[in-house]
Design a protein around this nucleic acid. Structure first.
Lengths: 216, 216
DNA sequence: GTCTATAATTAGATAGAC
DNA sequence: GTCTATCTAATTATAGAC
């Protein structure tokens, strides 16, 4: 690991870039077509490489899936952490509103996240176990802790935190998860920035807007 | 079609029952494992028949999928229609609350509905086209029409109807779509009647509870 | 590190007996 | 109407050249 010599730097870039292209293609296809529905040949084709190369960089299809999902959650964590960094000392209610807005924006720009969660977490399965214990539980604990404080302070209706969690993770991303349907059904493009903003406004209004005197 | 003679009645029952068992097995497996992930062999096994029998009753896997989905939407439409029947002349707000409660209950007892919608409507595909035009659009039009009246009457915050639609269809079913995850993550069983009721309460509170004076 | 060729498995669908 | 046997195609993974 200490070996990042100049020689290697000259050789590695294209290999690393290939790896990244494979991961990006895998994430898109796994999220759109499900684990079984996405074929390694199609992932390879989208990445512009041959199929056996996937088995060189990632031993199995399953390992490729896990690497792609790890990258996605890294991005989510980075986005939420960055959002919180600039908010030390700010009140709970404002922080929560901004975090929800950030979450809705992330869901719009990375619909793969909830596409993959809904695919894998409908069943008890090894991939579900892995997803929950490695990535989801941490976020669940953080979100429910915040909601419990907001309920105690009267900023949010008195609803048990698990329900608020599933309401938020359902209401926030669904329009973007189903973006192709939404375009056809409603004639709206959920990728348009003003639509994303309107959706964040709507979710925030419904969660926090229950008492007129609290609106700013 | 006019031929439902006694002879046929004596022969048909077991065949019809087999067909129904195949459809039920197909619905469960398609919704849990996705269209590609569900194998016809596994569907046959769950229905207690051999795999080629599926091709006898339904020409192709795709036709089996469509028949299973048709049955599911028939149940949804029946549940919502039955709920509305007894409410002629009742005010919009009360009707809407009761319909949302019915929808949440249906989502809890039939999580297959939104499992299949989220699987198929992430992509532009023939199955998505079929689903939208045959089943979803009618419900979308009805739901958005109701929301528009509720917004105009001030019963619901001023949020565009398409956003309210995706918030409702996200917030309502997600806990039940992800029931296995929810059990593991929150230690809650979303199939328990009191949990279903609590979730319906929560969704209704967030959508309609924004003005204290309107609560009954 | 990336390719071509191919092995091993499994999928959906068909043929034909009963 | 349901079964057994089997065909064809497609899948993931491996072997080995470059």
């Amino acid at each position: 690991m200490a070996q990042s010599t100049a020689q290697e730097r000259n050789l590695r870039p294209s290999a690393d870039a290939t790896r990244e292209r494979i991961l990006a293609a895998a994430l898109d296809l796994f999220s759109e077509r499900s684990f079984e529905g996405a074929t390694t040949r199609e992932i390879a084709a989208r990445a512009g490489v041959t199929q056996p190369l996937l088995n060189y960089h990632f031993k199995t299809k399953d390992e490729l899936w896990r690497a792609a999902v790890d990258g996605l959650f890294d991005e989510l964590d980075a986005a939420l952490t960055a959002r919180q960094e600039g908010l030390r000392g700010v009140d709970d209610l404002t922080v929560a509103r901004l975090l929800i807005r950030e979450f809705v924006h992330f869901s719009a720009t990375h619909p793969q996240l909830h596409r993959i969660i809904t695919q894998e977490c409908k069943n008890d399965s090894p991939r579900m176990d892995w997803l929950v214990e490695r990535h989801i539980r941490r976020n669940y604990d953080a979100v429910t802790a915040i909601f419990e404080r907001l309920v105690a302070a009267g900023h949010v209706p008195n609803i048990p935190a698990p329900h608020l969690y599933y309401i938020l993770t359902g209401a926030g991303p669904t329009m973007f998860v189903l973006a192709p349907e939404c375009r056809r059904l409603a004639g709206i493009d959920p990728e348009a920035p003003e639509v994303v903003d309107a959706h964040a406004d709507a979710v925030i209004e419904l969660i926090f807007g229950h008492r007129a005197e609290e609106r700013t």
